[in-house]
Design a protein around this nucleic acid. Structure first.
Lengths: 152, 152
DNA sequence: CACAACTAGATTGTGCACAATATAAAATGT
DNA sequence: ACATTTTATATTGTGCACAATCTAGTTGTG
């Protein structure tokens, strides 16, 4: 016995799936940084813009649910996007507790400049689209199981 | 033509491999948080301890290379670990530029308490070890290609 | 209506993470 | 030997990220 744990000692850094995920996220961040600099966005800001380009005029809550982020993270980030002239923040008339996030014309226009970003990342990954699609769905499945485990 | 990009529109959030990685890293962080709280560690601090449990008395640089982190991140983190009594920071005698990081007896002792952490994470992932090992190596391969692309 | 329970955001405090810069020590070239 | 370059770490400033807490607005119940 103990053959499995001898092959994969549990406290060795290189055996940690979490570190593989963590360090890959870092690597992506560094790939994105120069590509997003042209747009004046950070990576989390880019994620928010991706959400808004799909549909805007949504409350902060919706963006947070989509990105798994809370108001403590989003409020200052959205204020920076507003200061950059990309979005507008307005209280909802129906429910005064909600702040609706809408794109400005500049925010809409930025989408065109962003269109080239995914190609750059794909090139850096040196992977086929099929490989990435399959890796992505494995990760999403794992992520959703982890999130499910949190709710217990 | 354009069939592939119609199936996978490049600016849709859910098609972004990077977001899958990013959000999975978050999910791991939340799984780890309560497990590491017992040890008085954050997740990045835990990674540093994993490195040191494999070998200590190493310069800051080595830890940084292992974890892909720079001194701006590690210096304050290591000072907090020192304040917690887990490590000692001493200038190297041979090369005065280096700060050597060594475990204290408490730092060594913490390893025993940490042994149960990976089980908790494995349980939360609801995955077999084999699945995780394979996913890990795909991620590491992708990460290393991204890092290679950075150096061009 | 009154009052408790809940919800959406904002605020504060702590801890990464990195770029840019500074400093000091070591290594190198002439 | 001395100037140049490189290297290791530290510092500062900006921007996430989340826990804990606060406020204001909404909903549910009697």
């Amino acid at each position: 016995m103990a053959r499995k744990s001898a092959a994969h000692p549990p406290l060795k850094l290189d055996n940690q799936i979490c570190f593989a995920v963590y360090s890959t996220a870092h690597a992506f961040n560094r790939i994105y940084k120069p590509l997003l600099e042209r747009l004046g966005l950070t990576y989390p800001q880019y994620l928010v813009m991706l959400v808004l380009w799909e549909r805007d005029d949504v409350p902060v809550k919706d963006i947070g649910q989509r990105l798994f982020l809370d108001s403590g993270t989003l409020t200052p980030l959205l204020k920076r996007l507003e200061a950059a002239g990309l979005i507008r923040r307005t209280r909802s008339a129906e429910d005064e507790r909600q702040v609706l996030i809408a794109l400005t014309p500049q925010g809409h226009a930025l989408r065109d400049k962003a269109k080239t970003v995914p190609q750059g990342v794909l090139a850096a990954s040196a992977c086929s689209v099929d490989e990435l699609v399959s890796l992505k769905s494995e990760l999403v499945a794992l992520r959703d199981r982890l999130i499910a485990a949190l709710g217990e």
